[in-house]
Design a protein around this nucleic acid. Structure first.
Length: 990
RNA sequence: GGGCCCAUAGCUUAGGCUGGCUGGAGCACCCGGCUGAUAACCGGGAGGUCGUCGGUUCAAAUCCGACUGGGCCCA
């Protein structure tokens, strides 16, 4: 045997490709140059939704970040300037404080105070960047290009100054107010939350569900009477001041087992009674108004108008008893009714939700912990009419999972309800993807937009820039300069606008001259991130590209941002600039695990994307996302990633490898200009390519990566399974060098175009193909597919050609099925396929090439069309047939004549000999010396095709075919028709 | 209780807006082919009451309604 010659380099795996591409991007500084590309191009306005980098990213973040990258790359290739490509970090707020609290084991705010607010805030400041390196690493591996060297950070002084500017602007418009409002309140964090924060934290909880009786004066005949009220929050009962009924409901007085009369709404009676009720009295709701009852507990004390029935339309009978217990401190409706009836408040909870000594038996107990004590008391007092438990969704703190309570607190607000109409109107201009967000989830939320609870009783956040004097005059501050002016002194050097420094600043009240103190609140961190479009440019303090008249063109985040970032961006844009915040919003759905269950931290079925990216690469992960229904609930796991990527990216890579090996052998340069080939297959492929350019462009214009990826997948499939398969011999044919060059040019140009179409979706593989096809791979730092121009389709493709080819392929399918049924392998040629039809196929109109394409595919010598005739002409013994029932019948003979049979045998022998070449590690360009031994039909077949054999195996010198016994050193095969043996060695070049 | 979304083969999905040949693919499975794409490639087969029921229509996976199941959001 000849010594092993160097084998062609194997096709690279896309993970290796990614490493190579990343190295090039790094060495050639491609990313930072892409970020400032097209400085004079039209702007494509974008903002990154800032993550908080105090935790590891999970796979859901990877999904969002892969998807959001696609439109940016696409627009850049269309000549747009991306404004801004800044990365961003959300630095403030409860999530950050909570992490630091956990580290120290703090449970309460006073732990922080004891530790030192300044030290605490310094730790928050560093903690927000704890995982920045991992976030950056993920972005790099996934191919999300943002400017991580110059990110915006919500805790930086210029950013905060812009936020102060916006707050002052809202103040000037009368949109900032302070009030005593009932808000969701986290007793652990000791702060109220906003409604969009509450939205993030609903959980299934079990609570008591009790019906309590309240004593009212007996009826005329002296029967004792009671109101029935229902609650799932017994701890609110000591604060009960009223009961509400609805004027237009009918109430029944029902005889209880003890003979007493119990009052509840007619529509609610069925829920609490077994069997038909014995009705003692019927009351209209209005009859009950003013009815006084005995307070359950003495703690709230007497007060004007307390402990009576009032009327309100919010009462219903779908739930509860139709008589609603009102504790004005603990519910929005309760507060409203309490204020209307002037009964005052009773709030015996301290800031941690613990009962004070206003309720001695409960003092020191948390509000939830008080429930059992209260239940026992009610039971003892005989006031418990019914007792049970209920499983329901209850709001919990989105960061620490503590059950929230609704309570009336002093708080600052953005008066969102004042400009609800603008919110709704501006939403009409947003293109939501998916579109149902517009009037669905997001639109619904706008319709009921409540005032935005802005202030937080916390430490690490943007300080609320409002100062107050003892007389109650408020002074908002809109810039650092304004603050210095008020102070009458310059701000300290390196002024840091956080509580530690700002709280110590006081100035005389502009109205009365008294000393002012800052209102001791920080603001909702969502206000910070919602300010990103202008605050990232320090607007209006520095000149920059932010244009108050222009919305962002596009943002892309996860569904969980509906009431988060999507909402706060929208609210602030409407309030400050009276326009929408963004023109297009791409919303990605949740991820499901292998069994279709939502991935979440609490379920523990999330996984870390980094190892997956390491093993499978960014393109594979991205492709799997595109191929899933990512606007809904996508199931993306390492397995689906592998499969999705292999199918398209793997196949494309092998097509490229075929091209590369042949182009190299022929010394042909890649072609980047559109060729004008004559061959049918080439023309068809370019027509398909035109159609693909058009489809992909349309899809990406609509932010539809899924449609683009589906189209590309179908194209790669056609390219591999039809164009390349049918064209393969053309790439090494010596008979027609012009055709050979045409095939090279067509395939090369197609791959070049594909590299561009693929660039927004699979940036690494696209770069690899582009570089390889550029002629000088990775040599020129100024060449990248991502700097390139988006392809323009010459046309929508040739529809007639596409259809005719599709028809031809349909016939090929029929022929292959017939062959299968005839049991004749496709290397044995058959004389003919006969098709009886009165309706000649359109593909014959493509000329003789079409006919020979089909004949080659089916390895038949002739395709014969006949008018429909007597089926007896094709007896089953000799023919296999297929009738489509729609006007044509196809027939294929079951066997071939001897000379064709011999040709088949020859191909069988060739196959073995080619394998022997490969086993000997010969490159396909190596010439060989060959000696063969064969007998019988095999020998005849070889001799019949001697010259072809010599040519295709690259035999140099004389080919001997011997009838003798082969030596033991020869490779030998025993075939049905005789044996074949061969001895081959590489010919030494002269 | 209200709103929104989803349901196509074992799995991932195309088609649905604009109703019309036999509902396309890929993976897995069975069978086979090819061997100058080999850490490959290609074909054939089997597998579908297009969630259920009803309506509109000459014709429904597609349009309408109800229901079932799943998911998300809100109360």
């Amino acid at each position: 045997m000849t010594p092993a010659a160097p084998t062609p380099p194997p096709a690279q795996h896309w993970v290796e490709i990614q490493h190579r591409v990343e190295k090039f991007w790094q060495d050639a500084d491609v990313v930072s140059r892409a970020l400032v590309l097209h400085p004079d191009g039209p702007p494509f306005r974008f903002a990154e939704g800032p993550p908080t980098a105090n935790g590891r990213p999970h796979i859901g973040h990877a999904l969002t970040r892969a998807l959001k990258d696609v439109p940016l790359r696409y627009r850049r290739m269309r000549g747009y300037r991306i404004l801004s490509p800044m990365a961003g970090w959300d630095c403030h707020g409860l999530p950050v404080e909570l992490e630091v609290e956990k580290r120290h084991g703090f449970r309460l705010k006073r732990d922080i105070e004891a530790y030192g607010v300044d030290r605490f805030c310094e730790e928050c400041r560093t903690s927000v960047f704890e995982y920045v390196a991992i976030w950056r690493d993920m972005s790099r591996r996934i191919g999300l290009w943002l400017d991580y060297d110059r990110p915006y950070r919500t805790m930086d002084a210029p950013y905060i100054e812009s936020v102060w500017w916006s707050l002052k602007t809202l103040w000037d418009r009368g949109l900032i107010a302070k009030g005593f409002y009932t808000l969701p309140y986290c007793p652990r964090c000791e702060t109220p939350l906003s409604s969009h924060e509450v939205a993030q934290g609903y959980q299934e909880l079990t609570d008591p569900s009790i019906v309590v009786r309240l004593d009212v004066p007996p009826s005329e005949d002296g029967t004792p009477r009671h109101l029935l009220i229902w609650t799932t929050t017994p701890w609110t009962l000591p604060a009960n001041l009223l009961v509400a009924a609805r004027a237009d409901l009918t109430y029944l007085g029902i005889k209880g087992p003890d003979g007493h009369e119990y009052l509840l709404a007619e529509g609610a009676a069925g829920r609490y009674l077994s069997g038909p009720p014995e009705v003692l009295h019927r009351y209209a709701g209005t009859d009950l108004a003013g009815l006084a009852y005995a307070p359950l507990f003495p703690f709230a004390g007497r007060g004007d108008g307390r402990y009576r029935v009032v009327l309100d339309d919010f009462v219903g009978e779908a739930e509860g008893t139709g008589l609603v217990h009102i504790a004005p401190s603990y519910g929005p409706d309760d507060q409203r009714i309490g204020e209307r009836e002037h009964v005052g408040f009773f709030d015996p909870l301290d800031s941690h939700g613990v009962f004070t000594d206003q309720v001695p038996p409960l003092a020191g107990k948390g509000f939830k912990g008080a429930d059992p004590v209260l239940l026992e008391q009610l039971r003892t007092a005989g006031a418990l009419f019914q007792e049970g438990r209920i499983r329901h969704t209850y709001p919990t703190c989105w960061r620490c999972a503590t059950p929230l309570l609704y309570r009336a607190v002093d708080s600052w607000f953005v008066r969102t309800s004042q400009f609800r109409e603008a919110l709704v109107r501006n939403n009409e201009q947003v293109r939501w993807i998916p579109s149902h967000m517009q009037h669905g989830r997001f639109g619904n939320f706008l319709d009921e937009a409540k005032d935005w609870a802005l202030s937080r009783n916390r430490y690490w956040g943007t300080p609320l820039p409002i100062w107050k004097c003892p007389a109650g005059h408020f002074t908002p501050i809109g810039s650092f300069a304004e603050l210095a002016t008020r102070l009458g002194a310059p701000l300290p050097p390196n002024f840091d606008p956080h509580r530690v420094q700002v709280d110590g600043l006081h100035f005389p009240c502009p109205t009365c001259g008294a000393r002012t103190d800052r209102e001791p609140y920080t603001i909702d961190g969502w206000y910070d991130s919602g300010s990103a479009p202008y605050a990232q440019y320090h607007y209006p303090f520095e000149p920059g590209p932010f244009d108050p008249g222009e919305p962002l063109d596009y943002i892309g985040e996860g569904l969980d941002q509906t009431r988060g970032w999507f909402y706060t961006l929208h609210v602030l844009a409407s309030a400050l600039f009276d326009r929408p915040a963004y023109r297009a919003c791409l919303v990605s759905g949740l991820l499901l695990d292998d069994s279709g269950v939502k991935m979440s931290k609490s379920r523990g079925n999330v996984y870390d994307p980094i190892p997956v990216l390491q093993e499978l690469g960014g393109d594979a992960l991205r492709w799997a996302f595109y191929m899933s229904d990512y606007t809904e609930s996508a199931r993306v796991t390492p397995r689906t990633i592998q499969l999705a990527a292999q199918r398209t990216l793997g196949t494309l890579l092998h097509v490229y490898e075929f091209y590369r090996a042949n182009a190299e052998a022929d010394g042909l340069r890649p072609v980047t200009e559109r060729p004008t080939p004559h061959a049918l297959l080439d023309r068809w492929l370019l027509s398909r390519l035109d159609g693909l350019v058009q489809t992909t462009t349309e899809a990406l214009e609509l932010y539809d990566s899924h449609a683009a990826a589906v189209a590309l997948t179908a194209f790669v499939d056609d390219l591999s399974t039809w164009y390349l398969r049918r064209s393969r011999p053309r790439f090494w044919s010596d008979e027609n060098p012009a055709d050979r060059r045409a095939a090279h040019a067509t395939l090369s140009y197609t791959l070049w175009t594909l590299a561009h179409l693929l660039a927004p979706l699979a940036p690494f593989l696209a770069e690899h193909l582009f570089q390889e096809l550029s002629g000088t791979p990775f040599a020129d730092p100024h060449r990248s597919v991502h700097f390139g121009a988006w392809p323009v389709a010459g046309s929508a493709g040739n529809v007639e050609l596409d259809q005719a080819m599709a028809e031809l392929r349909g016939w090929a399918e029929v022929g292959r099925e017939l062959r299968q049924r005839a049991g004749v392998k496709s290397r044995f040629p058959l004389t003919v396929m006969v098709v009886e039809t009165d309706r000649p196929p359109a593909f014959l109109g493509l000329g003789p090439e079409a006919r020979s394409l089909l004949q080659d595919e089916l390895n038949i010598r002739e395709l014969r069309l006949e008018p429909t005739g007597d089926p007896g002409r094709f007896p089953e013994a000799d023919w296999v047939s297929r009738d489509d029932g729609k006007g044509w019948r196809a027939h294929l003979p079951r066997s071939a004549p001897p000379e064709l049979y011999r040709e088949g045998l020859f191909r069988e022998a060739m196959r073995r000999l080619q394998q022997a070449r490969k086993d000997a590690h010969l490159a396909f360009t190596d010439h060989i010396r060959l000696k063969l031994w064969a007998t019988g039909e095999v020998a005849l077949a070889l001799r019949d095709h001697r010259s072809r054999l010599e040519r295709e195996l690259m035999v140099e010198g004389n080919l001997e075919i011997s009838d003798a016994d082969p030596p033991a050193s020869a490779v030998r095969w025993d075939l049905d028709e005789g044996f074949l043996a061969a001895a081959l060695e590489r010919a030494v070049k002269a």
